[in-house]
Design a protein around this nucleic acid. Structure first.
Lengths: 204, 204
DNA sequence: CTATGTTTTCAGAAGAGATTGAAAGAAAAA
DNA sequence: TTTTTCTTTCAATCTCTTCTGAAAACATAG
């Protein structure tokens, strides 16, 4: 029927990869189509134009356009041109680790950073304007103290995570050693958060 | 109006934490309510029953029940009882790193493992039944060879990621050293996948 | 300038996922 | 046993996200 044989081994493998990658994407908060477009560009390895993508994935022009723009914003797909052709072509980052780094970097920027900001704001509600030198005159009530400890632990965790991620994100391998040392420091010993812990953590 | 003052600092901080955590959850493929229930249990730190949660989050009984069951399945919330009370109470894992490990472990199990299985299947389409001793008589066409290389790189990446994660997941700090060494081996040199090296998994 | 080819936008349609609420199920007390 | 209390289930409903398609915007050539 179609001009392109749809059942050769390569095409079949590509289609399956696209489906699987799309599935994965949607489990991680990325729209299925966007993940599929990326999968197609990655697995074919060659630059494709909007019409190629529309045809292959059977999606509308609008959808293709928006997905591509989003992928460009994530920095994991780039534009190219073919000479004598007015169309834009798109190709995906081919190094998996570079791809991974770009994704981690973006998600941190978009989700973790704002989260941190919110957490600091929340901390200010019960620990207002706490400067290092200014000791509070009265100890806070136990409920507040507990709350503060939990919140601080959470903040501490995300700070560590952010530091850690710099190991992945940095283009040189350098940051990795930092990350590794942070890991051994922080993960190994979940630390003195609980003095005499009643032992609820292990079995969970 | 209500018996509980809704505007004291602690309550306000808790509500805000719940909102922020719910937001974060939904960006990561977890239903907002489920994340909110978890947030509430984490930040209050004390066991709550279904009715407490329904009231505080203004959700239906069915929703509360389902969210709690899901959280139990994730292993980040546990059941408790109060003596003289027939109701079930729930409390959240209080160690942030333990919580993190549980989440990573579950997501790997639910998403990465099936993905890996699919990737292996896809590989079999273009590299069928490739046994170590049986060399193919003819080299595959370039398009297939390229495809295979890309797919192998992806598989290699997820294998590394899985190994890495064992460092986080293992309750002892031991696995961490492994993770760190994998990191320095694989991340630092992402390029090694291209040239002409047949054995793809040295340390794995 | 107009004509032609290409990309973006966005209101409405379609679809996916979350939530409710009432009924059924379970378990402990009487 | 029956009653009471609490928990789970699931079809119907609602909500939010994604997708479409046609129009508008843009760009290049002539």
């Amino acid at each position: 029927m179609s001009t392109r044989p749809t059942s050769d081994a390569l095409t079949q493998a590509q289609d399956q990869f696209v489906a699987v990658w799309g599935q994965m994407g949607s489990a991680w908060g990325i729209s299925r189509t966007m993940a599929e477009v990326h999968a197609l560009l990655y697995i074919t390895g060659e630059p494709l134009c909007t019409d190629d993508i529309m045809e292959r994935l059977e999606i509308s022009r609008g959808n293709a356009s928006m997905s591509l723009r989003a992928l460009l914003e994530w920095g994991i797909v780039s534009r190219t041109h073919k000479r004598g052709d007015r169309k834009e072509y798109f190709q995906a980052e081919q190094h998996v680790w570079t791809l991974f780094r770009a994704i981690v970097r973006e998600r941190i920027k978009r989700e973790v950073d704002p989260l941190m900001a919110s957490l600091y704001e929340i901390r200010d509600i019960t620990q207002p304007h706490q400067r290092a030198d200014a000791r509070p005159s009265f100890a806070p009530p136990a409920a507040i103290a507990d709350h503060n400890r939990r919140l601080d632990e959470m903040i501490d965790f995300f700070r560590t995570l952010e530091t850690l991620s710099q190991g992945f994100v940095s283009p040189s391998g350098r940051g990795l050693e930092i990350a590794a040392s942070v890991l051994s420091g922080s993960v190994t010993g979940p630390r003195a958060a609980e003095p005499a812990r009643p032992g609820e953590g292990e079995s969970l």
